[in-house]
């Protein structure tokens, strides 16, 4: 019997908002898939696009970057920089015909436990429809 495909989604979550949001989702016993592999970063702007590429090329089915809502960054404007970087990253992926849909940026505040659960559910469904990342079986990377 073939097992159902459970994606691996590497998630970079900012300590002040998204990670706390994820905690809240847990405290509230909200259901979200186990596909999410959280990595705590101090700010979403700590995420060099290279981390995302690395995850993508080493076989992550999806990469989620979670940060504070624009204007709410603990470091004032970190997330604005993140937004530009992700915009460039997604555009380059799109131009090269790589699957930019596997990269997602979400603003999730510390109080948005339900939103975190919703984003995880949605994104997991999106990734499931995209199927497994082909980088998992590509040897000439």
């Amino acid at each position: 019997m073939e097992r159902e495909f459970l994606p691996k989604i590497v998630s970079f979550l900012c300590k002040w908002c998204s990670y706390t949001g994820a905690d809240l989702a847990g405290i509230n016993r909200l259901q979200y898939p186990t596909s999410i592999l959280p990595i705590k970063v101090m700010c979403s702007s700590r995420v060099d696009p290279v981390f995302v590429i690395k995850a993508y090329l080493r076989g992550a089915d999806g990469v989620l970057i979670g940060g504070c809502h624009p204007g709410d960054c603990h470091y004032q404007d970190g997330n604005y920089h993140t937004r530009r970087r992700v915009a460039i990253l997604k555009r380059v992926f799109e131009l090269l015909g790589l699957e930019e849909g596997r990269i997602r940026l979400s603003w999730i505040s510390a109080s948005e436990g339900p939103k975190f659960a919703r984003v995880c559910n949605e994104f997991t469904e999106v990734i499931k429809s995209l199927g497994e990342n082909t980088t998992k079986t590509t040897i000439f990377l």
């Binding site: 696009p49 290279v50 590429i53 690395k54 090329l57 080493r58 076989g59 970087r85 460039i88 990253l89 380059v92 090269l96 998992k136 079986t137 590509t138 040897i139 000439f140 990377l141």
Partner: peptide, 26 residues
Amino acid sequence: EISQKGALRLPPDTIFFHLGRLIHMS
């Protein structure tokens, strides 16, 4: 990684380098 894929190019990270440069400076 080799166990998962069955084989791997060495040195690794060829595509990574070029993709990374595209994003860093294009």
